[in-house]
Nucleic acid binder design. Structure first.
Lengths: 338, 338
DNA sequence: ATGGTTCCTGTAACCGGTTACCGTCAACCG
DNA sequence: CGGTTGACGGTAACCGGTTACAGGAACCAT
């Protein structure tokens, strides 16, 4: 029966040694005779002693914890990110503190507060102001995830622009579609901003007039339903709805099908992210695959590396590759292995 | 410009007082003359001093942090839970540690590890073994959320059984349906177990033969798609698919519609939870509304109360009410306000 | 003048670890 | 046999706060 009230001094008393020796035995550092080590280990074992985290942290000046700041847990994308980050952190025996800003105004203060309790923080792009990120980076190592902050702050993100441009070209060239509608708010998140840029770039490159302004909605499934409604009630149905992410695309699909339209026959829909559901709907969603979990894991690794060795810090951006995944919703024939 | 390296002793030196006085001024306790207080506050202000958490925690024997343990972040249900918990904890200025077990085997140890870093833990039902919960409860206050653990451990959950019985009766009596299929694994989570119990109870009460065994799948949207496929490939389409939660119901809806069947005409589908998407699909989903966020917030409140005053602990279960929400997917006419 | 209050503030111990430094002792060498 | 060496382990300072206790000054009543 291990009493968690056991302290190193108590163990020292029981084993007839000093606290220093207990610490040495537990951490396996310094010189301790076999006989003494045995006595100490016995006492530790007998009373289930485990060193207190606070004492350790205070002495070491390290918390062995990292923080993750995100706007909210909307949909599979954020869920995957958080799980990827958490897995990696836990593997390194660091505990994970979360702060969900819900885009509150006072979240900047709360982030600063968090910085005092962890060794490093990963911030999802678009969550807090660049100014807050800078203040944060003055206190602890910071890694931006899926988006970027001020220039000096390292970031891990996926390639958005080129992939979205490629997908858009596919619709414009392969399928000969025009007047594509874009669903997503470029000012809402760095990811959407880049995807919108890729969307426009594809039009530019092909010498086409710039696309219509985006339907500015959020990134959740209900937002996609709403966007579809807004597009359809305009009278003329757009030939294709290019969504900023899969969740809005799935929402748009639901909304479009609910109006009795057929996809891709009456309207084409594409997404971005390749969440598991996208391969399962019918028609399966043409989208862009990005390694969401790996993205977050990489952010965690870079953060932990920097924490362990501040000299290893570099403001470099890690950009993970993405690939266009052609399925049925763009009008391509659905293969046996979608 | 606040240097976070400032310590109370440094401030004391600068203000020409002792550390004790700095502490008294910061915490507003004890007697301090107006003149001294002013000098100290000036020094604090000038150097942006904020007391270190570790020192505070070590002295107070309190971490001012709570933990949340959950199996994984699958879908809006868990997302809502986590956000509800986090909001409430942050309001009480407690930081939130998360542990995502992913149903790993070594998660019991990691939970114990977490217990050494927080003042209390909330565990989602079905995440870790009852034995681990007991060991945990010996170390820190524990509140179970959405499910229950060992008897002595307090829990916060929603009413599942009666609501599912009511919904099932609605299908059996109002719509005269028979041979309902249940989708969900009763052994996978306490929630599903209770819902399955309510499903069976409704059959019992009406003197009907017990329902067919459940289609044992997970709780995510793709699981619903898979379940629908399994049900449909049996040849005879069941008149109704009663899903353990909305996400599988939405998945089943996608799967069924993808096969060219119509809902509710060819097959009825119901869910449980009432996630936002459920009101938006067509037909809108008949389901049971449970106050997910409020559930988690209540768990956080009970945990924080117990942490603040261990004498306030009670093994009582808080059960929040649920309500059946009739929409179109069960065959009822869809009103203007679904 | 003296003893008792009251108000303010400093000293030092404490929370629970880590670790620099130093003393002890046995072994070994010249 | 004195001196050097190296293994071992204890003492105490330190991390950054909180707080019990005590001491000193000012004031009041006797």
């Amino acid at each position: 029966m291990g009493n968690s009230r056991m302290t190193a001094r108590e163990i020292a008393r029981l084993a007839g040694v000093s606290v220093a020796t207990v610490s040495r035995v537990w951490n396996g550092v310094g010189q301790v005779s076999e006989e003494t080590r045995r006595r100490v280990l016995e006492a530790i074992e007998a009373h289930g002693y485990r060193p207190d985290h606070l004492g350790k942290a205070l002495a070491a000046g390290r918390h062995n914890a990292v923080g993750l700041v995100f706007p909210g847990l909307s949909g599979p994308y954020f869920s995957e990110l958080i799980q990827g980050f958490e897995s990696e952190a836990v593997q390194s025996r660091a505990s994970v503190h979360i702060l969900c800003t819900h885009l509150r105004e006072d979240s900047d203060d709360q982030v600063i507060e968090m910085a005092r309790r962890v060794d490093g923080i990963t911030v999802l792009g678009g969550t807090i102001s660049d100014d807050a990120v800078r203040r944060l980076a003055d206190m602890v190592p910071v890694v931006m995830l899926a988006g970027s902050g001020p220039d000096q702050v390292p970031a891990v993100r996926a390639e958005n622009t080129a992939a979205m441009a490629e997908l858009t070209r596919h619709l414009l060239v392969e399928h000969g579609l025009r007047n594509l509608a874009f669903v997503g708010n470029p000012d809402g998140s760095p990811d959407v901003s880049e995807r919108w840029a890729g969307f426009r770039a594809a039009h530019d490159e092909l010498g086409l007039p710039p696309p219509a302004p985006p339907i500015r909605v959020g990134l959740q499934q209900p937002d996609g339903v709403y966007a579809a409604e807004r597009l359809l009630e305009r009278g003329t149905v757009p030939p294709a709805i290019v969504c900023a992410n899969d969740e809005t695309a799935l929402g748009a699909l639901v909304g479009v099908l609910g109006r009795g339209l057929r996809v891709p026959r009456d309207v084409v829909i594409t997404g971005f992210d390749d969440v598991p559901m996208s391969a399962l709907v019918s028609p399966p969603l043409t989208t862009v695959r990005q390694p969401i979990r790996e993205l977050a894991a990489e952010a965690a690794r870079r953060l932990l590396t920097t924490v362990a060795d501040p000299a290893a810090a570099s403001p470099e951006h890690t950009v993970l590759p993405t690939t266009v995944v052609i399925r049925g919703s763009c009008g391509c024939p659905v293969g046996p292995n979608p």
